[in-house]
Amino acid sequence: MSSIGTGYDLSVSTYSPDGRLFQVEYAAKAAENAGLSIGLKCTDGIVLAVEKIVQSKLLVKGANRRIMSLDNHVGMVSSGLLADGRHLAKRGREEAQSYRDQYGAPMTLKALIERVAMYEHAYTCYGSVRPFGISTIMAGVDKTGPQLYVVEPSGSYYGYRASAVGKGKQLAKTELEKLDLSTITVKQGVMEVARIAHLVHDDNKEGNFELEMTWIGPETKGFHEHVPSQLLQEAEEAAKRALEEAMEED
């Protein structure tokens, strides 16, 4: 950020002399410093998870859900400004619904992500607006099978087999790379994602967290639903055990 304060970071409609849009990069910072989100594409579905830092002990456990549905078959989670995430989800729902109305079929993830990304991109083109302060994972199962994409504040998007956004995303991605993503099932995915979330999280630095997880798999009949609380609990317990064992080995 050598160019900070040179006057080129006030508007999203002005490039710096070396061709950067600082407002977009700052928006990405907002996303990078927020709680970790993980998305995993499996052979038989997808898994989404988010690390919710417990902001206050007065909050009800399990309340303030963060992972959202855009359609029956599409889930979305984002790291960054919560309200920006909700706004994007609303837009995604409208796109998915209008597609259903017009074509009488569920929208493919590829088509949906294109629309949502174009929407985000529009917020990087005008001086009167501010880019979205979120990195978003959107995943679902459509007629072409499980799909997973990540959209950045710039409006660029990529398809992945697995990805993570938010604080600690590098470590999480390194762990995801170790998995055999060509054979993993959602059941195994739930266990792995829980393990990675617990591994990446640092209780001393960030305080306690709640793990929220959703999936689409054989058990949900193609619908995007919360992972049953019993399974989630099992996954978290296994994750904690695995971490303790790893500590002892060290």
Binding site: A63, R65, M68, S69, N72, R93, R100, D101, G104
Partner: peptide
């Protein structure tokens, strides 16, 4: 049928929240 399914899908996507 279309009206109902639209309404139901809509409600279902919201239902994942709190």
């Amino acid at each position: 049928q279309k009206q109902l399914e639209t309404m139901i899908t809509n409600e279902r996507t919201q239902a994942l929240g709190d």
